[in-house]
Design a protein around this nucleic acid. Structure first.
Lengths: 240, 240
DNA sequence: CCTTTTCCAATACGACTGCAACGCAAAGGC
DNA sequence: GCCTTTGCGTTGCAGTCGTATTGGAAAAGG
């Protein structure tokens, strides 16, 4: 055999360039020539390692998910030896959120691919089962063990990510919302438990635990009834 | 004056065609010629009503959000006269989720635009504040009134939408997760309307009448706007 | 009637796309 | 010394893209 070149290394190099392009110009700016230029190679070489553009896209897609997987693994590794389930979940989710710079870039790429797979069902099929695993894992960490709650937590993470990238939420707002939700799930602050009384100030458990700025709604605008002001939108992805 | 043509009507007709194309082939398949073909007109006409493609895209973007706004208004209109906050929120959210056929199509379009605005920060600036309003409205309906919980609920909706579109969640799973989350927020299963000092019955009277087809003013997005802003975008697939 | 203004179809243009084909350099196996 | 296989740069091709331009049909106002 002639040369010895690590095929998979080249492919990852190209995929990295693709992600860079997608992060700053969107997926529609991803062309063979652009990616090749970003990678510092010729378009011929890109064609050599990916016979078609779709092949390249699919490879990059799995590369994205592998990257975030690795990110989570790393974050969990750098965790206290015996974390509480709540700590563990919070760390995992916070790691996956596009809070800081590089995570935001990855998030943008992931979002672009998300829209991409919406039109190419075939491509998304492979990563569907892994999210089911994820739901079950989360459920195993919850006091209730309820898969419905687990699915909700996962969806909340996804939504926070979307809004962070959209600029609707600031990082501290997102983390605040996450913690508020974890409070509900783990029962530290808000009793959402059996006895449900209207929450007056004393409803809060005296548990010291988390310091949360609590704001009892004094009585801001009750927002009139259902007549909605919701201007909305904001909900692109859920769309409608 | 020569002809009398309702300018805005033509624009909506074209925007509708655009959404149809985007729903089934993705935003990258949206070209002047494709949209024109889908609308059954010539590309010249499209150019006559939108001097640039970006202008057309921006118009379609606001059309999407207006459509979902109208959909929510309609759903709320067809609700019992004096709904409990929980009922109200559930109806709103379920309406915005891409559960059924047409809602899924719109959701796909919205998701595509979400990724689109990630690269065009200018376009997303106008719809950001409305989501803050939305958060406040939701908070006003929660027993706790906690904005953190409200933001979480909104994010959960978004995430459910994303996973529904991605095929990771089935409709019943999504609704199940939503109800589980509402259980946490409100206590147990839907109690009979808590009496709250706020929201008097009178204020609540939401007019039942609803107009889905909205007629609107001429130009939401005047070509080049002063807008500017940050970018955005998402975190997908949950990557995993 | 003619003029003017709007509507819109047709076409042209340059840039860009994905892809196929070609050609040459390099590296073993013989 | 081949010779064959692989790596990869270059070029060409057919097609689509967004946009600018052109020209004619259709309605008012004079």
């Amino acid at each position: 055999m002639p040369k010895k070149v690590d095929h998979d290394e080249r492919r990852r190099l190209i995929a990295d360039a693709l992600m860079r392009v997608a992060a700053e110009q969107g997926l529609e700016a991803v062309s063979l020539r652009h990616v090749a230029a970003a990678a510092g190679v010729s378009t011929g070489m890109v064609q050599h390692y990916f016979r078609t553009k779709d092949e390249m896209m699919s490879f990059a897609l799995t590369a994205v998910s592998e990257r975030s997987e690795a990110r989570v693994r790393f974050a969990l590794g750098a965790l206290a030896p015996d974390p509480s389930p709540r700590e563990l979940l919070r760390t995992m989710i916070a790691t996956l959120l596009p809070l800081d710079g590089p995570a935001r870039e990855d998030g943008r790429v992931a979002l672009a691919f998300l829209a991409w797979t919406a039109v190419r069902p075939a491509a998304s099929a492979e990563l569907r089962p892994s999210s089911m695993e994820f739901v079950h894992f989360i459920a195993s960490q919850l006091p209730s063990g309820d898969p419905g709650q687990a699915a909700g937590l996962l969806a909340l993470m996804e939504g926070l990510g979307v809004y962070l990238l959209g600029g609707q939420y600031e990082p501290d707002q997102a983390l605040n919302a996450l913690d508020a939700h974890l409070d509900l799930l783990f029962g530290t602050r808000d009793p959402a438990e059996p006895k449900w009384e209207f929450r007056t100030g004393l409803a809060a458990s005296s548990a010291p635990d988390v310091e949360v700025a609590d704001e009892r709604k004094a009585g801001p605008a009750p927002s009139s009834g259902p007549d909605v002001e919701v201007a909305d939108d904001s909900e692109p992805a859920g769309g409608r």
